[in-house]
Amino acid sequence: MAENVNRHNFLDFVYDFYLKMKSKDVNLVYEGEITHQITKAFTSLTESKMLREEEPNTVQKKVFHVMVECLQNISKHASQPEIATDEKEGKGIFMISKGESEYLVTTGNTIPTEKIDGLRFMLENINSLDKEGLKKLYKQQIREGRLSEKGGAGLGFIDIAKKTGRPLEYHFLTLDKDESFFVLTSSISRK
């Protein structure tokens, strides 16, 4: 009997999840480690889907760009509270949805709470800049920045803002004094 109830709950959960994904036009959702292989798989999956749906070339390229940078952000910056530090890859949630007028690429991952201020400052700065300002910042960062140990160039957010021509939408959810959840949504116009 108890097992039946559990199964029922799980079925409800699955159906509910399915309906929620549909209502938000989510094409792909993933939770877990983001590795290079995962990045390649997701981008090629999305690419072939866009190709089939005859999405304009420029839109395809922009979605590809944003996906790669977002996935690499997680793999390079997500903190890993539950797993040993020798695990290289970052964990997080990755989602892509296709609406009438735009694609949304959303990532969510835990970060150390102490990093919020720095991150917010950086994102606000990027959002305050126009196209020319972003170009300037990009050129400054590519010249002065160094490649981090994990291979990050510090250019991802700037590049997303530049390529999409839209501000970065972000939220922080404090989990406890050490860990917070960072959500970033980038939108790419389908026009």
Partner: peptide
């Protein structure tokens, strides 16, 4: 045809 930001640093 495509390069990511990490590559852009190396291209520089």
């Amino acid at each position: 045809v495509y390069f990511n930001t990490a590559s852009s640093k190396l291209l520089l």
